[in-house]
Nucleic acid binder design. Sequence first.
DNA 1: AAGTGTGAATTGATTCACAGCC
DNA 2: GGCTGTGAATCAATTCACACTT
Lengths: 241, 241
Amino acid sequence: MFRTFGETDVAEREFDARRARAGIPEATVARLPLYHRVLVGLADDGVSTVSSDALAATAGVSPAKLRKDLSFLGSYGTRGVGYDVRHLLTEIGLELGITLEWPVVVVGVGHLGHALANYGGFTSRGFRLAALVDSDPSRHGEVVSGVKVRPAADLAELVRDEQVVIGVIATPSEAAQEVADALVAAGVRSILNFAPVVLSVPSEVEVRKVDLASELQILAFHEQRKSAPHLIPPAVGGVGS
Amino acid sequence: MFRTFGETDVAEREFDARRARAGIPEATVARLPLYHRVLVGLADDGVSTVSSDALAATAGVSPAKLRKDLSFLGSYGTRGVGYDVRHLLTEIGLELGITLEWPVVVVGVGHLGHALANYGGFTSRGFRLAALVDSDPSRHGEVVSGVKVRPAADLAELVRDEQVVIGVIATPSEAAQEVADALVAAGVRSILNFAPVVLSVPSEVEVRKVDLASELQILAFHEQRKSAPHLIPPAVGGVGS
DNA sequence: AAGTGTGAATTGATTCACAGCC
DNA sequence: GGCTGTGAATCAATTCACACTT
């Protein structure tokens, strides 16, 4: 961090910018979509400036955490004033790649697939439902949310033609690994998996999972602690039974 | 915390057991459902003993993490051998309260509500679909997964009669806060929220959320970094526009 | 020899608290 | 006076590495 010559200014700024962008902690990245959503709401309400306290309260996080998070993106606030809603929105949007339109393929057009296809936030947040795929021939040709359901065999072609990089697995568990393999083979590098199975994919492919049963079980665990910690059978060797 | 007399042994063991159970880190709790699911699979395959390495590989976590996680529950493994699948399954099940049957109410019977109601893991993992509620009169009386859809006005009564403590919000965003208020008023203390809004609830109510758009945006963020970090417009004051 | 259980070390996330700027 | 930005401190999670048990 030696700042000796004026000419290093540009190189330094470039370096700083890259570092700032490269080094965003995972926990922060995971909250950016939340901030983005809340800011969209504020903008819609005509709010033009917001303090970290107010924004944090609306997003349900602590003000310190919010400020720290935003500081990783850059210094987009004004001391004594707050953040410009529109500006911050733009910056977070850039960071999340919302300016682009990511084509997404959804595999599995059961109830969940329908729910996903019809999900409004889907199209309004930088994603485009590029293709719907299902292995059940009776569904082929059906149009959901303006997109025709295609056979699984067409997956590779669809991914190529639409330049899909994100795939969503909304099939039954049994089919999930097979679908993941097909997605990877087709060139998809990010997968959102709704099936309750552990997928095995090459390390360069990123998988995120949404698991209803796990979420419920986590709630149940806490519920159990809250309601009657002393009622839990000890289950330690020797006692009971 | 004085340990002066031999007679404190029993009290100490009790204390240790409670402490072990009370002090399970959140990150560990969040993985227990995963371990449970993987173990069920192993048990179904007739596997009776498993090492931390094998179990970790199947669950997609590091062996050290797995062992540390399990150590919070107690010492249920055998050195030089591994873990008894059935025993470990029982212990994790107890910890998660899977031995009980938690009645759950799902509010909102659109595609997502249908998907949830028909989700197999739901009933097979310690939960019971106790009630389905929707505000749309045209859906009332419809039977989904063996449960009749009831009007929103019946919520309080259903929660009381079925002793529901967990509620799932599968409504459009606009209705989510209203539904949350109704659930809380009815006595529900744990909520799983699929609507992309920040719910405000009393502090004693636990909310977990599942947000499709956020998950996709997190994937998109990483995708953007992977593919072309240098193509990101700087967007730092002065440049462009 | 194999493999768990766990202190110690490390890495990451959150919170504190206040200097700096408007 | 108000509010951001951020080092420093704290707290939590993960990984290391090895003593201990079978």
